[in-house]
Computed example of a mutant assay.
Amino acid sequence: MKIESRLAQIGSISEPVTGAVSYPIYHSTAYRHPKLGQSTGFDYTRTKNPTRTILEDAIAQLESGDAGFASSSGMASLQTIFALFSQGDHLIVSLDLYGGTYRLLEKIMSRFGITATYVDTNDLDALESERTPSTKAVLIETPTNPLMMVTDIEKVSTWAKRHGLLTIVDNTLLTPFFQRPIELGADIVIHSATKYLGGHNDVLAGLIVTKGKELSEQVAFLHNSIGAVLGPQDAWLLMRGMKTLALRMERHQENATKIACFLKTHLDVENVYYPALPEHLHHDVQNRQSSGNTGIFSFRLKDARLVEPILRHIKLIAFAESLGGVESLMTYPAVQTHADIPEEIRRAVGVDDRLLRFSVGIEHADDLIADLAYALEEARKEIGV
């Protein structure tokens, strides 16, 4: 089946007793054993839950992987994956990186002797120069958050396999509807499922997909042992959101492209960072490895003084953290999502005090453009330009 059909049918034929089209929520934490030495397949909900299993099987199939794991958040998924590594191990990580991932690596994993080096993962020479005998994996965000840098997944995965390294791809911004990294050679895919997969700003969740029997067994052990698993109610909410993923991603992409085109010609905007735009540095790579574009982009203003009044004057668009929901949200990365990254590192990458990140929702594009135009005009008046 096409991916649109597989998404819409998640869990719809999985309950044979009643024929329930919406898969039930199993809140039970314990499951009766038929007799000594026998199991129904479910023993304790941390290890396996019927509702969560439907979700995990669905994401594994959608991402072309062998096993799926649902976690209590995207950060819990990352923590579970980082537990694959040991003291002294080294990771190579995307240069432009979500602040929470940076915080986890630098303030927590570093205490256990796991180190990370941040590079432009499109530059194979840079990857090679940073590789050491202790390097175990490459972690890629593509597109990155917030500067929308794109990495050639197949190129990096091929390089990593040649050196016996794992390739881990954060696919949050494109979802398996638009991009499937395992098909391009990745070993592990992670999602902050709170974002586009859930899609409604009402569920906190993370997902992991693995390729290969041994790796899947290792992650299953860690997932159960660490225990940051997703509860059944949230698993059900996430499945419900995923059923409309195809429709939403198409609308997110359509709206984001229209608004990015509006902003790139605005006299107060210096740059727009969105892979759908032909002038994007890796526009061709994005088109080759993905079937569409995300609904998030960033733009840099010419004057930092515009930031505060813009955020105050937007009405339809909410000034709020997060992304990927049906409602449009605008974020100021320097003081919100990326505040934990030291200022000199942020500025070197491009996350400065003039950058705004826009998660475009599914409202009508004309209304969103009108809201932005009004906020920009009022901001101009306030600063006297």
Results as ranks from 00 to 15, higher is better:
Leu356Pro: 00
Phe299Gln: 07
Arg380Lys: 13
Gly41Ser: 06
Ile188Cys: 10
Glu217Asp: 11
Ile114Phe: 02
Glu4Leu: 02
Arg347His: 11
Gln9Trp: 03
Leu316Pro: 00
Thr172Tyr: 01
Gly99Lys: 08
Ala70Glu: 05
His90Ala: 09
Ser291Tyr: 01
His266Thr: 12
Thr294Asn: 05
Cys261Ser: 14
Met242Phe: 09
Leu166Phe: 11
Ile310Asp: 03
Ala193Asn: 08
Leu316Tyr: 05
Cys261Ala: 14
Ser322Thr: 15
Ala83Ser: 14
Leu174His: 07
Ala58Asp: 07
Thr151Tyr: 00
Val209Lys: 01
Trp159Ala: 08
Val349Thr: 10
Gly65Trp: 06
Ser86Asn: 15
Phe319Gly: 02
Tyr23Val: 10
Cys261Pro: 00
Ser298His: 06
Gly199Cys: 06
Gly11His: 01
Glu154Tyr: 03
Gly198His: 07
Tyr98Ile: 04
Asp66Asn: 15
Glu128Arg: 12
Thr121Leu: 12
Ala365Ser: 14
Ile59Gln: 05
Pro34Met: 09
Leu372Asn: 07
Leu301Trp: 08
Thr158Phe: 01
Ser64Ala: 14
Glu254Pro: 01
Glu183Ser: 15
Leu215Trp: 02
Leu184Ile: 09
Pro50Met: 02
His200Gln: 06
Ala30Thr: 15
Thr244Arg: 13
Glu382Ala: 12
Lys35Tyr: 07
Asp120Leu: 07
Ser28Gln: 15
Asp96Leu: 07
Ala339Leu: 11
Arg240Ala: 13
Leu368Asp: 02
Glu214Asp: 12
Met148Leu: 03
Ser73Cys: 11
Pro275Leu: 05
Pro232Cys: 11
Leu329Ala: 12
Leu97Gln: 07
Ala256Ser: 14
Arg6Cys: 03
Asn271Met: 03
Ala260Val: 11
Thr257Glu: 15
Thr172Arg: 01
Ala160Trp: 00
Met148Trp: 00
Ile13Asn: 12
Leu127Ile: 14
Ala375Asp: 04
Leu139Glu: 02
Thr53Cys: 01
Val17Glu: 07
Leu237Met: 12
Arg288Gln: 10
Tyr31Gly: 11
Gly199Lys: 08
Arg6Gln: 11
Asp366Gly: 01
Phe319Cys: 06
Pro143Lys: 06
Glu378Pro: 00
Ile383Asp: 00
Leu105Gly: 04
His313Cys: 03
Ile140Asp: 01
Leu127Trp: 02
Thr244Ser: 15
Leu230Asn: 09
Thr45Phe: 03
Glu63Arg: 02
Ser157Trp: 04
Ala205Asp: 07
Leu207Lys: 05
Ser129Asp: 11
Asp340Pro: 01
Tyr31Glu: 11
Ala370Tyr: 01
Gln61Leu: 12
Thr244Trp: 03
Tyr102Gln: 07
Ser5Asn: 09
Arg305Pro: 00
His90Gln: 15
